[in-house]
């Protein structure tokens, strides 16, 4: 009941935020220098052709009218046509979004399951060598640019060791189409193609690692400092005095109260990676939405840019909603205070 109310309130707020976002991006995209029609038709098109396309696209209408027209389409779920691919933006996004989503999902999962234990380890051995090692690795991971790491991994694993594929999502000859969820790993499992599942992971691994490093470093550092804060609390001393064994203390009594900061970071990273994955997507020729978004921005493909931004925005909102619900689950104080407020 309370949760439903909370959810409704959050969704209404999110719609407002998305509405604001759509206006800002709409204006910015049109204020950028360059003529979309000219860019789409190339330098050799005649002035008449360009004018004709501008009229087709409605670019000669007042800005407000253009926006209303766009929003009318959006209300029906139509994101318009891409000038770059000459296809509906809906189709482009339906094709590229799952690839990015799968990449980011595996990235975050790996980052989380490496980062949190590393943070716990570091806090347990504070100022001793395991802590120093974790701190060194996480700082290094946080400052290494993803493109550098991507190239390094590609050279190492692909060209020197020949153990992992370096480009694409699946081999061309495998004859598998992810037509259910769009996530190759999930679809492969749903269709019982375990071979495809493993193959898909081989392709996912390198880009995920390249993309994961910074996030893992962040999560490890946040978990460490959060755990250290909690470890000096009276209730931890109390559990020690009552003889609760150390593993229980560490992973139950300390980790759960420390969990909110890493969880929050994870949500923010999850959402921002959707847009920021493009460098890694370009290096690994990963057919994702982030790379698509960058291509369309460079081409001033207005509808596609709007489409990518809106989908990312919705995704951001949804992820944060999920994270908020998780935070409430992990920390009852948040739940109870919310109820009183």
């Amino acid at each position: 009941m309370e949760f439903t109310l909370f959810l409704i309130r959050r969704i209404l707020w999110s719609l407002l935020v998305l509405f604001g976002l759509s206006i800002v991006i709409f204006v910015i995209a049109r204020a950028m220098p360059g003529d979309p029609a000219r860019l789409a038709l190339g330098p050799r098109a005649s002035a008449e052709q360009v004018t004709q396309l501008r009229e087709e696209l409605g670019l000669n209408k007042p800005l407000v009218q253009q926006y209303v027209l766009y929003m009318e389409g959006l209300a029906e779920g139509d994101l318009g046509k891409s000038l770059l691919t000459r296809r509906p933006v809906n189709d482009d996004i339906r094709e590229t979004f799952p690839a990015t989503f799968e990449l980011v999902l595996s990235t975050i999962t790996i980052a989380f399951f490496l980062g949190v234990p590393l943070g716990v380890l570091a806090s347990r051995f504070k100022d001793r060598w395991p802590d120093n090692a974790v701190r060194f690795v996480s700082i290094l991971a946080a400052v290494t640019p993803s493109f550098f790491l991507a190239l390094l991994l590609q050279i190492l694993a692909g060209y020197v060791l020949h153990i992992l594929p370096t480009t694409g999502r699946l081999p061309h000859n495998i004859g598998f189409v992810a037509d259910m969820t769009g996530l190759v790993t999930v679809d492969a499992l749903l269709r019982g193609r375990f071979d495809v599942f493993l193959e898909a992971w081989r392709y996912l691994l390198l880009p995920s690692i390249a993309l994961m490093a910074a996030t893992m470093g962040q999560i490890a550092r946040i978990t460490r400092s959060s755990m250290i804060d909690v470890s000096s609390q009276d209730y931890i001393e109390a559990s020690r005095a009552f003889g609760v064994p150390e593993p229980v203390r560490l992973f139950k009594y300390m980790l759960r109260p420390s969990f909110v900061p890493p969880l929050t970071i994870m949500g923010l990273e999850f959402a921002s990676l959707i847009g920021n994955a493009f460098v890694v997507e370009l290096v690994f020729a990963w057919p994702g939405m982030a790379a698509y978004g960058v291509r369309t921005i460079l081409q001033k493909d207005l509808n596609a840019v709007m489409g990518v931004v809106i989908v990312s925005g919705v995704f951001f909102v949804v992820v944060n909603l999920v994270i908020d619900a998780l935070v409430g689950f992990v920390d009852p104080r948040v739940r109870i205070r919310g109820r009183r407020a």
């Binding site: 009276d234 209730y235 109390a238 009852p332």
Partner: peptide, 24 residues
């Protein structure tokens, strides 16, 4: 030594606001 804690001898902690784990 550890066997005795909480069984033979127990402590009543001082601060009720901070001596209980807030998330359990």
């Amino acid at each position: 030594r550890k066997k005795l804690n909480g069984t033979e001898m127990s402590m009543v902690f001082q601060d009720p606001m901070s001596s209980l784990n807030p998330v359990f």
